[in-house]
C-alpha cells in the first residue's frame, strides 16, 4: 500500500494502532476478535501460554473465517481451559492425550478431506507435549505433510506437573529436576536439549517459524501466512511462565522481549527447509538483563556471581545472532 506517511508513532510494536487503516490492524486490536480462549480460564496470573494461545488461535480463526478445529495436547493449556463443567474455548476443540496431538489433528484433517469441507485444523501443545512425548507423532505428521498447523507454546519446562525439565529447558535453568546442587551446581546442564523448529525444517515441510508473545504483529503475520499454506506447518511460540520461571506476572511480555533482544530466542521463519527471514534485534541487550529477572537463574547471581556460566549463555545468544543474522536489518521478515 503506497502512502506518504511512513511513521505511525508506535509503528507495529503496540497491539493496535488507531493511525493504521482497518485492514492493516492486528487481529488482537479488533473489537470483533474471536477470543477463542475466553475469560474465566484458570491459567495463573500473567500466563504467557494463555496469551500466546489467544493470539495464535484468534489469528488462525480470522485466517480461516472461523472455520477451524483445534486439537490440544495434555498440559497447562488443556487443564486450565477445560475443567468440567467449564470450557473457555469458542471453537470446536478436542483433547485426547499428551503425546498424540499431531496424530489426532491428522485424523481430523483426514476427516475434512474425505468430507470435502474447507475446515482447517490446528494442533497445539506445550514444549513437553511437542518436543518430548509428542515428538514421534509430530514428526510423523510433518513427514506425511498432513494439512495441519501445529503450534508449540514453549515455556521451557513441564509446568503443569510442577516445573520439571523438558528438552526445551535452557541450560543453567533451575527446574524441579535440575536443581542447582551437587554434581550440577549450575542447574540444567549445557549441551543438551533440542531445537524442534530446526528439526521441523529438516522435514522440509512448507512452513516453519518461531514467534513470541512479545511481538504480536510478527506472531499474527506468521500464523496468517501459515494458514495461507496447506500441508504441515509448525510455529514455535515463546511463552514465559511466571510461576515456573520465578518471575513477576507483570513481566511476561518483558521477559519474552528480552529473550528476543538478547538473542537467546531467535525469531525466524523457514520455507521448505530454508530460512527465509528473521526478526532483527531492535535494541540488543546482554543475556544478563533477561536472566536476572528470573528466579530459575538466581543461582547464577548469588555470591559468587557465576560469571563464566553467564558468559556461556551469552555465547549461546551470540551464536544465535550469527546463525540467524539477528543483527541484520536487511532480510528481516518483519
Amino acid at each position: 500500500m503506497e502512502t506518504t506517511i511512513k511513521f505511525y508513532q508506535t509503528d507495529t510494536f503496540t497491539v493496535g494502532n488507531r493511525l493504521l487503516s482497518e485492514a492493516e490492524r492486528s487481529v488482537q486490536a479488533g473489537m470483533q476478535r474471536t477470543n477463542a480462549l475466553n475469560s474465566g480460564h484458570r491459567a495463573c496470573q500473567g500466563c504467557g501460554e494463555a496469551l500466546g494461545a489467544r493470539f495464535a488461535v484468534d489469528a488462525a480463526m480470522r485466517a480461516a473465517g472461523n472455520d477451524l478445529i483445534a486439537c490440544n495436547a495434555t498440559g497447562c493449556l488443556e487443564v486450565f481451559s477445560t475443567p468440567y463443567p467449564e470450557s473457555s474455548w469458542q471453537l470446536p476443540w478436542i483433547h485426547s492425550l499428551f503425546g498424540n496431538t499431531a496424530a489426532v489433528a491428522t485424523g481430523v484433517a483426514a476427516a475434512q478431506r474425505v468430507k470435502g469441507t474447507k475446515t482447517r485444523v490446528l494442533a497445539q501443545g506445550g514444549d513437553g507435549g511437542t518436543t518430548d512425548i509428542g515428538f514421534g507423532c509430530l514428526s510423523g505428521m510433518f513427514e506425511r505433510n498432513d494439512d495441519v498447523l501445529y503450534i508449540c507454546y514453549d515455556n521451557e519446562a513441564y509446568m503443569n506437573t510442577g516445573v520439571q525439565r523438558s528438552s526445551a529447558t535452557p541450560p543453567a535453568a533451575r527446574t524441579a529436576t535440575t536443581v542447582p546442587v551437587g554434581q550440577h551446581p549450575n542447574g540444567n546442564v549445557f549441551g543438551k536439549g533440542k531445537s524442534v523448529p530446526l528439526i521441523a525444517m529438516a522435514h522440509e515441510i512448507p512452513y516453519v517459524a518461531t514467534a513470541s508473545v512479545a511481538d504480536l504483529r510478527d506472531l499474527e503475520a506468521k500464523v496468517t501466512k501459515a494458514m495461507s499454506i496447506h500441508g504441515a506447518r509448525y510455529i514455535h511460540i515463546h511463552v514465559p511462565c511466571p510461576l515456573g520461571w520465578g518471575a513477576d506476572p507483570a513481566h511476561t511480555i518483558k521477559l519474552a522481549r528480552l529473550a528476543i533482544e538478547s538473542g537467546l530466542f531467535p525469531v525466524f521463519e523457514a520455507e521448505h527447509g530454508e530460512i527465509t527471514g528473521h526478526r532483527a534485534i531492535r535494541e540488543q541487550v546482554p543475556v544478563e538483563d533477561y536472566l536476572k529477572l528470573q528466579k530459575r537463574f538466581a543461582h547464577l547471581f548469588r555470591n559468587p556471581k557465576q560469571v563464566e556460566v553467564i558468559a556461556q549463555l551469552q555465547a549461546i545468544a551470540d551464536r544465535n545472532i550469527r546463525r540467524f543474522k539477528l543483527l541484520e536489518k536487511r532480510g528481516a521478515a518483519v
Partner: peptide, 18 residues
C-alpha cells in the same frame, strides 16, 4: 508412524465425524 499414532488418527477422524 506407530500404532499409537494409528489409533490417535482414528480418534481425531472419528471425532470429526468420519
Amino acid at each position: 508412524e506407530s500404532e499409537f499414532a494409528a489409533l490417535s488418527v482414528a480418534i481425531g477422524a472419528s471425532a470429526a465425524g468420519a
